[in-house]
């Protein structure tokens, strides 16, 4: 069974089209491009309540993304949630008294961690620990507080 020239060209085109589609899928339609293997260093931070934070949530400083949440765990000794942040090596200028807060993008959007650099001269290194943290706002707690304020008058 010999294949004709046109068939071969068409099959070649078919396969090329497949690879092109895969490329578009990776670059345009998913986060493949942000998988680049940049070197990171890890710092830990404890939160009272992480709300809806998830692994791979963004870590930002002044709105600029500098890393991602690597893992979330519960620390049984501190009785708090332990969040490990993977920060890109290029952003190594966080003083040891940096504060981490959990915010929500938009009213119902996804949650992310915002870092606010402190004033110390010593910088955070691999394995460092952020001491000041501000938990996620839980809508139910807020509503509860408002109700208490309204009824206690």
């Amino acid at each position: 069974m010999k294949t004709t020239r046109t068939q071969e060209i068409w099959v070649g085109l078919f396969v090329a089209l497949g690879f092109a589609a895969l490329f578009i899928l990776a670059m345009k339609m998913s986060n493949f491009a942000s998988y680049k293997a940049t070197d990171v260093y890890r710092i830990t931070v404890l939160f009272e309540n992480i709300g809806g934070l998830k692994p791979r949530s963004p870590v930002t400083v002044s709105g600029v993304r500098v890393g991602r949440v690597e893992s979330i765990d519960y620390d049984p000794n501190e009785l708090q949630a332990k969040v490990v942040l993977a920060i890109e090596n290029g952003y190594n200028f966080f003083p040891v008294d940096t504060q981490a807060s959990i915010y929500t993008s938009g009213l119902l959007g996804e949650q992310y961690i915002a870092l606010e650099p402190g004033a110390e001269d010593e910088m955070m290194k691999e394995g460092g620990r952020i001491r000041h943290s501000q938990s996620a706002l839980v809508l139910e707690e807020l509503v509860g507080q408002v109700l208490v304020n309204l009824t206690s008058k």
Binding site: L25, A26, K28, M29, S30, N31, A33, R56
Partner: peptide
């Protein structure tokens, strides 16, 4: 349209 897609769709998990 594109940036929302790239930030929420995971290559390994979804594609």
């Amino acid at each position: 349209f594109w940036s929302q897609m790239q930030s929420s769709v995971d290559w390994r998990e979804d594609a």
